[in-house]
Each structure stands twice: as C-alpha cells, then as structure tokens.
C-alpha cells in the first residue's frame, strides 16, 4: 500500500531519518515503536507530507507522494489522527466531521451529515454532536478526530501517538475504537507507546532507534523473541 524507499530527513544538524525502507502492506496494521526522538513521528508525518523528506521516495500504491503536484488529492486518501486531537475549535463536533466532506469532496450537507452521524455513532459520541470541542474530554475529542479522519473514506490511517495526551482512564476508550478499525481492509500505521495494545492489534511491529528501523517483524515474534540486542533492551526497559 505504502512503500518508503531510502527516506532521509534532517532538521538542521539533526539527522532524524536515516535511509528508511519499508513496505506497509494493504489492510495490515503496523505499529511503530521506539524511544522518544527515534524518528517515529517524523516518519509518519512524511507519509502525508506534513514534513517534506530531504530525499527518497514514498509511494501510495503507484503514486509518488513526495513529488506529487496535487498533494491534497493524496491527502484525501490518507487519514491522520494527532496526539493533541487538533479538532477545529470553531466548529461543532458534527461540523468537524462533515467539514472536509463539504469543502474538499463537495458533498451535499445532507449526505455529509448522514455519513458523519453514522460515524459518530460508531465511535460512541453521537450525543455530543452539537457540542464544541472545548467542552469534551480528551478521550471524546480523540474519538471525534478519528471519526473526522474516517469520514473521508481513506485507504490509510495514520495515528501519531493517539493516546499520549490522554488521562489514563481515557486511553482504553480510544484504543477500543482503534481496535475496531483493524482487519476491516483499512491500512493502519500507528505510532504508539501502548505495548499491550501493540501486541494485541499489530500485524507488524517496526522498532526504530536513532532514525533507523532496527527491527521489523510480526508482533508475536517481535514481542516473544526480538532478534536485535537493542530491541531486547528496549522491551526490557518498558515491559
């Protein structure tokens, strides 16, 4: 689904991504783990061009993303969920979900509303549809953000540490929603520190350190017998 080839990215003197190569397979859920500053989020943000790669290629199916003239067309196919939710503060929950449908996909209000209501029900927050984001808890906001991304009917969903900004008691409600998105044909790429969740939902695990992919494997193998010393040390530290 998404192929990353020889991806390089620096912020000034800081070399964040070093020759990243990976093939994110269609319909699979990949969880990227690693300590802070290992380049996980930057890799994710390069996939929808929120960060511009210095060199290398990123392909969505056969379309080269990072030289695309029409990046907005590609972004419609890639949903993103952020650590800090980033709901539009001047719009109600319903309008947050319908906004891109109306202005990007040019759908009618009625059609957009129907789709949004269905999605809000799916993430369990239909009763808050007329609320503004600042009246919702973090967990509720994140579920709305997931509905907003899903509304565009994306092929790929990117999750950038979706539970890191949440109070502990709200983590599970968001993870529950995310769990339902696996094995639905959707390609999920998740940056997360939730190891239990990763173990449960991931088809593939990528372990990153210092801007490189150190190890990637299916979740069971990775957590039971990581093959690299660094991954072993990392898992020992956090489990």
């Amino acid at each position: 689904m998404i192929k990353v080839k020889h991806l390089e990215k620096s912020f000034g003197d800081l070399h964040v991504l070093k020759d990243i190569n990976y093939h994110f397979k269609k319909g699979k859920t990949t969880v990227i783990i690693g300590s802070s500053g290992s380049g996980k989020s930057t890799l994710l943000r390069c996939i929808n061009m929120l960060e511009k790669p210095d060199s290398g290629d990123i392909l969505l199916e056969d379309t080269l993303i990072n030289y695309s003239k029409n990046i907005n067309a590609i972004r419609q196919r890639i949903g993103m969920v952020f650590q800090s939710f980033n709901l539009f503060s001047n719009m109600t929950v319903l309008n947050n979900v319908t906004y891109a449908l109306r202005v990007v996909k040019k759908e009618s209000i009625a059609k957009a509303n129907n789709k949004a209501l269905e999605l809000l029900e799916r993430v369990g927050i239909l009763d808050k549809k007329d609320n503004y984001p600042n009246t919702l808890s973090g967990g509720q906001q994140q579920r709305v953000a997931i509905a907003r991304a899903l509304a565009m009917n994306p092929d790929v969903m990117l999750f950038d540490e979706p539970t890191s900004a949440l109070d502990p008691e709200m983590v599970s409600e968001v993870l529950e929603v995310m769990k339902k998105l696996t094995h639905t044909g959707l390609t999920n790429i998740i940056v997360s520190h939730e190891m239990g969740f990763a173990k449960e939902v991931a088809d593939e695990i990528i372990y990153m350190d210092e801007g490189k992919i150190i190890e990637h494997n299916d979740a069971l193998t990775f957590f039971n017998q990581p093959s690299t010393k660094r991954a072993q040390e990392f898992l020992q530290k956090i489990l």
Binding site: L50, R75, Q76, N86, V104, R148
Partner: peptide
C-alpha cells in the same frame, strides 16, 4: 490559531483558501 488545527486541515486535503 494552533498549528495543530492547521495541520489537521492540511491532512484532510483542505485548500489554503478554505
């Protein structure tokens, strides 16, 4: 205006004008 809200709009494919 928070950078995050702008990024969220970008990620949805919203044009600069909108």
């Amino acid at each position: 205006v928070s950078k995050g809200e702008i990024e969220a709009a970008e990620a949805l494919g919203v044009s600069k004008y909108h």
